[in-house]
Amino acid sequence: MIDLDTGTFYMLVGTVLFGIGFYGLIAYPHLLRKILAMNIMGIGVFMIFIAAAYGSGEGDPDPVPHALVITGIVVAVCATGLALSLAVQVQALTGSPKLDADKE
């Protein structure tokens, strides 16, 4: 096993989550999947902030990234709300939960 310190480990996890989310956003045509994928991307970013707050693990954690993550969550909730309501509108107007260009 490679010996990773905790901060670096969670930073890697955050990067992987971001990558999974980004892949999902591009790969899946269903809007609900895209919106979920975006939230996974966001969680990846928050994880990196938390890892930055932990730092090397010595001493107290840095409170600034916590404040940023809380703000980020608020923004993400608002954005998800708007995206979901738009997706509902797309479904209602076109009868499909996918965008025209993404249909086979």
Binding site: A83, Q89, V90
Partner: peptide, 13 residues
């Protein structure tokens, strides 16, 4: 609405 949805996804990414 479709254009707005796409704009939203690209903008958020």
């Amino acid at each position: 609405v479709q254009a707005a949805m796409r704009y939203m996804l690209v903008g958020l990414a």
